[in-house]
């Protein structure tokens, strides 16, 4: 178990003074991931909020080697860095143990970067890919992505007179990554920092590729008060909208069971992006959203139970 008093003494790789918004979930997730490291690391970022706000030339917030290439290719880029490491290590030109991590938002991961990510995972590079999932293209101004929950109001899925927000349900990227049969896949939330750091430790420790999907609430895009970021991520977990689990060598384990599963509306209500769902006439949609969460949660529990029984 990670202990807070140990973690706070870890040198911060992402230094303060970067220009992410107050209350942004992404740097919290990134810092928790990097706290799991004991070895030096090379960081790669997809184009997005995290990249543009931490590397405004001539400044950089990164105390580790860092590369940004483009939007859709963080996985391919870090795979090239890792290949160079393997080659130079074999030749005796590099002797240190070095880790490799890529960070991408949900746009750069679920959508435009999915092919590059799938390729890198299949090839088996020794790398960790972290998706900080804030559920939309926040950097370009809150456009819907395939990670946007059904019903959410975004600038390209606006809640209009006829269509109440995004019509389609979220893509289950964690399951897609698990289907690559890589050594480690996990879903985490910054509200459960201990669980997150442990998962990051496992991800860095395995031989081969690992994938972490981390919920990163966005005060601007979700429309809640910036001080409530951790509360939002906690509500996502406690309503089972964002279950915490891992798949280690093919074995699925739910790492946190809410004592009392809260109704989905507890998560939706504080967020401006779901405000229209509480207007008269959308009761049916709210019920459908709750049913969808229940269904996915039950399926997940069944899979975990099946494996326990084996």
């Amino acid at each position: 178990m990670a202990r807070l008093k140990d973690l706070i003494h870890k040198p911060e790789i992402l230094s303060p003074g970067h220009r992410m918004c107050p209350g942004c979930g992404a740097p919290i997730a990134v810092r928790q991931v990097l706290m799991a490291l004991d070895d030096p690391v090379v960081v790669c970022c997809a184009t997005g909020c995290l990249e543009v706000s931490t590397t405004i030339y001539p400044y950089t917030a990164w105390r580790s080697p860092f590369i940004h290439n483009a939007f859709e290719n963080a996985a391919a880029t870090i795979s090239g860095v890792e290949a160079a490491y393997l080659s130079l290590k074999k030749q005796g030109k590099v002797d240190k143990e070095i880790k490799f991590v890529a960070f991408g938002g949900d746009g750069g991961t679920y959508d435009i970067g999915l092919q590059s990510l799938s390729g890198a995972m299949e090839r088996g590079h020794n790398m960790v890919y972290v998706c900080y999932d804030n559920g939309a293209y926040m950097n370009t101004g809150i456009q819907r992505s395939s990670a946007t929950p059904r019903g959410a109001d975004t600038t390209t899925s606006p809640a209009g007179k006829v269509i109440p927000g995004k019509p389609a349900a979220r893509k289950d990227l964690t399951a897609i990554m698990a289907a690559h049969n890589i050594p480690y896949v996990a879903q985490a939330s910054p509200s459960h920092w201990n669980d997150l750091v442990e998962k990051a430790k496992k991800a860095f420790a395995v031989e081969g590729p690992a994938f972490l999907n981390i919920l990163a609430p966005c005060p601007r895009g979700w429309r809640y008060d910036a001080k409530d970021t951790i509360e939002m991520s906690r509500l996502a977990v406690d309503t089972c909208q964002w279950p915490l689990y891992e798949i280690e060598d093919g074995v699925l384990r739910i790492t946190y069971q809410p004592k009392e599963k809260k109704p989905l509306t507890d998560y939706l209500k504080p967020q401006g992006r779901f405000k229209h769902l509480f207007a008269k006439g959308n009761e049916q949609l709210l019920e459908e959203l709750q049913a969808e969460v229940d269904k996915r949660w039950e399926e997940l529990k069944q899979r975990a139970a099946c494996q326990e029984a084996k």
């Binding site: 790669c44 290439n69 391919a76 870090i78 795979s79 090239g80 290949a83 160079a84 799938s118 390729g119």
Partner: peptide, 17 residues
């Protein structure tokens, strides 16, 4: 790699490394 886009992307990563 799985595409030329990734070929050039990985080559950039390796060269920068």
């Amino acid at each position: 790699v799985e595409s030329e886009h990734s070929a050039m992307s990985a080559t950039v990563g390796a060269a920068a490394a």
